[in-house]
């Protein structure tokens, strides 16, 4: 963990992002970090997901896409990405790195350490 991260996260590595209502339902907000943007999504069931804000296709900003079910459609060329895994919906191939999130008392927390499985490009 680098220094910047230590400053903003609690002892267990969680960063407080904001209240769940600050993210539009079926929408996303961006968390800007020195290592790049992370998109934090909220779907119709108030589930929260976080992905690197970079489409596996050509790097489009996923946070700007349309959220539906557990998917987001990239605004640039319409790839669909699974919010829960970061994987592109078949037959497209690729994935966006996934970040752990949790909601405590309506407050969204994010870990800045990407999950294993998908390279964080």
């Amino acid at each position: 963990m680098n220094q910047a991260q230590q400053r903003v996260t609690d002892t267990e590595g969680w960063l407080e992002v904001g209240r769940i209502e600050e993210i539009p339902s079926l929408g996303a907000r961006v968390v800007r970090t020195p290592a790049g943007d992370i998109a934090v999504f909220r779907n119709a069931d108030d589930e929260i997901f976080a992905l690197r804000d970079k489409c596996p296709h050509k790097g489009g900003p996923l946070s700007q896409g349309i959220v539906h079910g557990r998917r987001v459609t990239c605004p640039l060329h319409d790839w669909k990405i699974h919010l829960d895994t970061g994987l592109a919906v078949a037959p497209d191939e690729g994935c966006a790195a996934r970040f752990p999130v949790k909601v405590d008392d309506g407050v969204v927390h994010l870990s800045l350490a990407a999950d294993e499985g998908c390279p964080d490009r």
Partner: peptide
């Protein structure tokens, strides 16, 4: 306004 700004900025 929320559309145009990040929810959080980490320096």
């Amino acid at each position: 306004a929320h559309e145009f700004v990040p929810i959080k900025q980490v320096s």
